[in-house]
């Protein structure tokens, strides 16, 4: 019984660490959205400078998971949790990398000609909101250990993919008309691409949560409903 309590305390600490990392990455993404939509270079620099904290979390969680496996030899749900946390911390770190990348675009002068109208036409705010909701819903799924919403979260990734494809088409036509903005268009395309990748990593986190809670593997399954 004593061992079980010790074991559970360690797992609880691991989960808390993950919650802190998740909140930080979510806030990075929200700030990066605001910085992008309002061309706020100050806020963009804040996102860039806080990226190191995310990396530190990733290293800490990886090392704690390794220690847990070595010391407690977890099985069943405990093993699934630790494996999931290791992969989720990697996915969150990548999401934060992309958020930092988008923030860097905001600080580049070539980027500034992009108008509010163009951002609206490309539905970039919708893309931001969709990936942010994916990330916060999957966080809620982990916190409540409930995977009911996983299907809906994964569907949102398809919405993000569609927005990316539409945005790409739009920019291709746009650059033909406004060739003097070509550098800005390329930068914008890179932002869209980063948001699309963030959506993919959010999907990965949901897949890991489903593996942990329901012991089901959703990866590379076409119909994930």
């Amino acid at each position: 019984m004593e061992k079980a309590k010790h074991n559970e305390t360690e797992l609880k600490a691991l989960k808390e660490e993950m919650s802190h990392m998740w909140r930080l990455v979510l806030s990075q993404l929200q700030k990066c959205k605001q910085a992008y939509l309002t061309n706020d270079t100050e806020l963009a620099r804040e996102v860039i400078s806080r990226e190191k904290r995310v990396n530190t979390f990733e290293l800490k969680i990886d090392s704690d998971c390794e220690n847990y496996i070595a010391l407690f030899a977890p099985v069943a749900v405990d093993l699934r949790l630790v494996l999931s946390l290791m992969k989720i911390s990697g996915a969150l770190e990548r999401i934060a990398d992309f958020a930092e990348g988008i923030a860097k675009h905001v600080t580049i002068e070539d980027f500034h000609p992009i108008t509010a109208k163009l951002k609206e036409d490309l539905k970039i705010e919708t893309m931001f909101d969709t990936v942010i909701s994916m990330l916060s819903d999957s966080f809620a799924a982990l916190e409540s250990e409930n995977t009911k919403l996983s299907g809906k979260i994964l569907q949102k990734d398809d919405e993000v993919d569609t927005l990316f494809m539409e945005g790409k088409e739009f920019l291709a036509k746009y650059v033909q008309k406004e060739s003097s903005y070509s550098k800005c268009v390329l930068e914008t395309l890179l932002v869209l691409r980063k948001l699309e990748r963030i959506g993919d990593h959010c999907s990965n986190t949901v897949e890991e949560i489903v593996f942990y809670i329901d012991a089901k593997v959703l990866k590379h399954v076409k119909s994930r409903e």
Binding site: M1, K3, A4, N7, E8, P74, V75, A76, V77, D78, L79, R80, A215
Partner: peptide, 19 residues
């Protein structure tokens, strides 16, 4: 059995939560 046991009792026992 050790990754995804189907019964709650098995999971509780192998993860040390039994009793």
């Amino acid at each position: 059995m050790f990754i995804s046991p189907q019964k709650k009792q098995t999971q509780n026992y192998i993860t040390g939560r039994f009793g």
